[in-house]
């Protein structure tokens, strides 16, 4: 079925590449290699909507797309991007077009990666927002649940149903879901939740940020790989064209003004800024959470900084003080 769709759509799905699983373009030869029900791919889903670099005046990458195998953390992360980029007053036409042209096929996670912690922040390891269709592989069977109108249209056009899922299938899906939740909860028992994390960060002393930023080299990998980090830089091109390039507050000079003041010049302040943004400031501005617990920033950090260790220590310090 997928091979037939390739005429009209670009299809992306999780494929194993050595140790990595990535959202890779699917060809007729690789449709059999798709991994279903896997936790998040190495790179975030956001890059389909906010590419690392894009000329926003000439971008023509508008072929319809299907992205298969999006886990809940990646899908939930689109909610805050939508709040920012599809803002009623200033809708971003490029982001909006990418969103409209993409069918998102979510998937339940049947296993977890070392740093997965979605349940700690109130998300379940199965798609509950932004998916058009949810796909689960059980044994030989693929079970689809149609969620959105877009998903329904897609199904009507392209998918011929073999049979209706039965009670037993639903039971299996639910059992698998419960298992994944249990694994996540056991792994992250002592991790403070999203709101408490915000309070801990807001009250924290400077020392802990100095301690944890000691090995930070300002490479920005944590932001690049984050499914909700969405800051960007404009690069001017001839003919007054603009290239949008993903940027991060972790780079020196991000907030520097012409007169030279740069509030984020000290490394520990810059390092803390990213967490203040995610857990303190964004919650004051937006409804959607700015961290969905995917744990990619921990995996990507070449300084081996683990934000969850930091938050655990903040929590512990508070307990000790009390």
């Amino acid at each position: 079925m997928l091979s037939g769709l390739l005429k009209d759509y670009s299809i992306f799905a999780p494929i194993q590449n050595g140790d990595n699983v990535e959202y890779d373009p699917i060809t007729p030869a690789t449709t059999g290699n798709i991994i279903y029900n896997h936790p998040k791919p190495s790179s975030p889903l956001k890059t389909f909507f906010l590419p690392v670099r894009e000329n926003i005046f000439t971008t023509s990458n508008y072929k319809k797309r299907i992205i298969i195998g999006c886990p809940a953390c990646d899908l939930a992360a689109l909610s805050i991007l939508d709040e920012i980029y599809l803002n009623q007053d200033y809708m971003d036409p490029v982001y909006s077009k990418h969103r409209k042209n993409t069918i998102l096929i979510g998937t339940d996670c049947h296993s977890i990666n070392e740093h997965c912690h979605c349940t700690s922040y109130g998300f379940n390891p199965w798609p509950e927002e932004n998916a058009d269709i949810i796909l689960t592989e059980i044994g030989e069977n693929i079970i689809l649940k149609i969620i959105s109108e877009k998903g329904q249209e897609f199904k009507d056009q392209h998918i011929s149903l073999i049979q209706e899922a039965n009670t037993k299938d639903h039971q299996i899906i639910n059992d698998l879901r419960e298992k994944t939740v249990k694994k996540l909860n056991e792994k992250n028992t002592d991790l403070p939740d999203y709101t408490i994390t915000g309070e801990l960060i807001a009250q924290s002393s400077e020392n802990i940020w100095k301690k944890y930023s000691e090995t930070c080299v300002s490479c920005g990998a944590c932001s690049a790989i984050c499914p909700t980090c969405s800051c960007f830089l404009f690069i001017e091109r001839p003919e007054f064209e603009k290239v949008r390039s993903l940027d991060t507050c972790q780079y020196p000079g991000f907030e520097r003004v012409a007169a030279g003041e740069d509030p984020l010049r000290p490394l520990e302040k810059r390092f803390r800024n990213r967490y203040m943004c995610k857990y303190v400031w964004k919650p004051q501005k937006f409804h959607s959470k700015a961290c969905t617990g995917c744990g990619r920033c921990i995996e990507a950090c070449i300084g081996k900084i683990n934000k969850n260790d930091l938050f655990r220590e903040l929590k512990q310090n508070l307990t000790v003080e009390a």
Partner: peptide, 14 residues
């Protein structure tokens, strides 16, 4: 501040 996009998206003037 370091206003860039002007539309509350790019983050430079947070």
């Amino acid at each position: 501040k370091n206003m860039s996009c002007g539309l509350g998206k790019c983050g430079h003037c947070m």
